[in-house]
């Protein structure tokens, strides 16, 4: 066992983990963060995406032991319990989700993309949006609703209409 200290969603905790424990499992089991979804456990579906030191990272391809001293953000840190963030609301209004299993991964993957677009003050075209989310698989929506949600969230961020 290895002792590690993680700052997860603003709370710091020291715990003992086996080296083989995946960050995804530790976040779910030790931190109770069930929004970290595990789809494929080999880096193909994007469901388990979290932010590790502000960078999107697949938590199924990360050992918790590697993260000692790191800052981790999960979907639970976005928009509060009623999912008030503009991107989350846009997913809701644009039919960006149905079963919801992939949604936390999409949100965590797309957050920095949307922030980057807003910072650059530009609305990305659909191809660019699709490239940004190409590491995430959704089996319900057919992706059109997700693309529309991203467009809407960027638009809102830019202070434009919908």
């Amino acid at each position: 066992m290895i002792d590690i200290t993680l700052e997860v969603n603003g709370k710091t905790k020291t715990l003992s983990v086996e080296p083989r424990h995946l960050l995804a499992d530790v976040l779910r089991q030790e931190f109770g963060l069930s929004g970290v979804h595990i789809g494929c456990a080999h880096g193909a579906c994007g469901c388990c995406t979290v932010h590790l030191d502000e960078t999107p990272r697949l938590s199924c391809l990360t050992f918790a032991a590697q993260c000692d001293g790191s800052e981790i953000r999960t979907v639970e840190s976005i928009g509060g319990p009623t999912a008030e963030h503009a991107l989350q609301q846009a997913f809701r209004s644009e039919h960006g989700l149905q079963c919801g299993y992939c949604t936390p991964g999409f949100i965590m993957t797309l957050m920095p993309f949307i922030e980057e677009m807003v910072e650059q003050k530009r609305l990305p075209d659909d191809d660019e949006i699709r490239e940004a989310m190409s590491g995430n698989i959704c089996r319900c929506t057919g992706y059109h609703g997700i693309v529309a949600a991203v467009r809407k969230a960027v638009n809102l961020g830019l202070g434009g209409g919908i």
């Binding site: 994007g46 960078t55 999107p56 993957t109 190409s134």
Partner: peptide, 9 residues
């Protein structure tokens, strides 16, 4: 190469 998250890491 993979997708954006893979390329970052």
């Amino acid at each position: 190469i993979g997708h954006p998250t893979i390329r970052r890491n």
